[in-house]
Design a protein around this nucleic acid. Sequence first.
DNA 1: TCAAGAAATATACCTTACCAATTGAAGGGT
DNA 2: ACCCTTCAATTGGTAAGGTATATTTCTTGA
Lengths: 243, 243
Amino acid sequence: MKSRRRFWTVVDKLEALIEKGEYPVGSRLPAERELAEVYDVSRPTIREAIIALEVRGRVEVKTGSGVFVTDSEQSGRLLKNISAFELTQARALIEAEAAALAASTIKEDELHALKQTLEQMTVPETADEADHRFHEIIAKSTKNSAILVSIQNLWELRRSRPQIIAAYEDVCSQGIEQRIKEHTEIYDAIAARDSASARKAMHNHFNRLINALFDASEAKALEEVKRKTDETRGLYSISHLTQ
Amino acid sequence: MKSRRRFWTVVDKLEALIEKGEYPVGSRLPAERELAEVYDVSRPTIREAIIALEVRGRVEVKTGSGVFVTDSEQSGRLLKNISAFELTQARALIEAEAAALAASTIKEDELHALKQTLEQMTVPETADEADHRFHEIIAKSTKNSAILVSIQNLWELRRSRPQIIAAYEDVCSQGIEQRIKEHTEIYDAIAARDSASARKAMHNHFNRLINALFDASEAKALEEVKRKTDETRGLYSISHLTQ
DNA sequence: TCAAGAAATATACCTTACCAATTGAAGGGT
DNA sequence: ACCCTTCAATTGGTAAGGTATATTTCTTGA
């Protein structure tokens, strides 16, 4: 039941070579016919593999000239090294602005849906999902798809990185009333169409999260690590950005 | 200088049909040979197009059975409908916060590199590239990878959507001195480690861009369209968000 | 009648072989 | 020194046909 299509194996091999630095950024890959011979497949199969790499953004094909390694695999590398602190800070900045914007663009039905998530947040089973929906409704209420996808991307990041999931799990379970209180403050500000307060409330929400993350990591850390953490706490704080 | 490879046009057409609902989620596409006949290309070309769609996650190929439309084209659908206004507003909000953050996290060498881009901006040939680097250096200066990738994603969006490219081209060419002045104000604020001013300067920069975009679209629009544009101008304005 | 197995069919998979279009460099003429 | 032509290398694209796999249809036996 193997039977992966042949070009995928070629894609994997070429991608590995690019990763390894065998084909540096900007360099040209061997000609189609050479690759066909090396990997013992036909030329169309090589073409398919190269198209897959092209769609993935790893290479660029120049007609009559050759296939060249693209620069872009940097962002993929970046994604792997994002910490929970960075993610939270980014969400704080972006979602605070989204909340401020939403305060003036949100519609009644969205406001109603937002209030409903607050109620769902009191039930432990649906709390996490409600949290997600709460932030997503605000993002959608901005009526700006670019902001929405930015926030969705960050959420996806949180969902997909194991280390970040672990970090959040420690934090979310504790302080349920606090969590609801913060979300309620955000809701109230948006419902009152108060952009500045909405921004502040969202900042406050995430600032508490960041500090909770630090506390959690502190609890786990050894003494010498603890000292380092304190030093960098200031770097990821957002409290000084509010006014 | 057209000469896009043939399979891309097939990809576009198939994607459009999927988008349109001609091929609903879960349904099977016509056979290779049929598609080859319909679009008047060879079967390998059809195969290439399908592989591109597969890598993009739009379809799934089942050997011996057919190629089926995949469910998860949601976010891809969103990306297609982002207007230049939305993109600019999103950049305004996010990059303004990035600038505010960078004002307290930027290092001397980054500040130096930032100043260099200002000089390159005076040369028309390198102005656009310098613009890009200017914003990228600020993003990197935040020392937050999540913010960096968010900003990079938005830039990639600007680079890849033809309609957005067109909209920006009309605007960027005009008012070079103004553009440099705005960037200089941003630089000065960051160099002075003044977060609030940096945010304000970045807001100002993008706010001018948004209005220029509206003016450009107004110039092209007919009378009745013009009226509508005026009505929605308030929706994408960010001036009310600054303090 | 119905269910299980076998054959036929439809489909994607992969290859070989060929020609066309584009690029870039080498070479020659001014 | 410069420009133009030519030519080799490369990718772009096509045609035709055999292979492997999945699905459907048909046969056959209980």
